[in-house]
Amino acid sequence: MIKPTPNPPETDTTSPYESLDSKKFHEAAERALDHYLNPFLPRRPALKPNTIYKIAPGIDSEELLANACETLASAKVMANDFAGMLDASQRHVLLGIAQLIMLGELAVNRVLDNLELKADASPQ
């Protein structure tokens, strides 16, 4: 009698780790799977932040906000002055940037005003 399906193929009794190439292939496959299936594992140590422009830790918040306000005001003036030297399309872009700087300056000014109001309202 003839069987409709052939006998199962004979299995190879050799280990996949017997040759050096198969071991390298297995290690590469494991690294690839780890890369795609465990993406949140840290790959390298975190970078140490550059401290060349570090602000001293003891500076008062109000002083920092005042400095930020002055810096934003200066950046706004520089952007507006430079916008006068450009043609129409580039001028519009730079004036938009100057307006964003101005909005940041207004926000910092509001925080400074709130700090002054709290200082005035506190009993002395």
Score class of each variant (00 low, 15 high):
I2R: 01
I2Q: 06
T5R: 11
P8W: 07
T11N: 08
T14G: 06
D21G: 14
K23M: 15
K24S: 03
F25E: 08
H26C: 03
H26A: 12
E27M: 12
E27N: 10
A28H: 02
E30A: 15
R31H: 02
R31N: 05
A32P: 02
A32Q: 01
L33G: 06
L33N: 07
D34I: 09
Y36T: 14
L37V: 15
P39N: 14
L41V: 14
P42E: 13
P42G: 03
R43I: 14
R44H: 13
R44N: 11
P45D: 10
P45W: 08
P45H: 03
A46N: 02
L47A: 15
L47M: 15
L47C: 07
L47W: 02
K48T: 15
N50V: 03
K54S: 11
G58R: 07
I59E: 09
S61W: 02
E63R: 06
L65H: 10
A68P: 04
C69K: 13
C69H: 12
L72G: 05
L72E: 00
L72T: 05
V77K: 08
M78T: 08
A79H: 04
A79Y: 03
D81N: 15
D81L: 10
A83S: 11
G84D: 12
G84E: 15
L86E: 12
D87L: 07
S89G: 06
Q90T: 04
V93P: 00
L94R: 01
G96F: 05
G96Q: 05
A98Q: 03
A98L: 04
A98T: 07
A98E: 00
Q99P: 00
E105N: 12
E105H: 14
L106A: 00
L106C: 00
A107M: 07
N109I: 01
V111Q: 12
L112P: 08
L112W: 03
D113L: 09
N114Q: 13
N114A: 14
L115S: 12
K118G: 04
A119N: 09
A121W: 06
S122I: 01
Q124W: 10
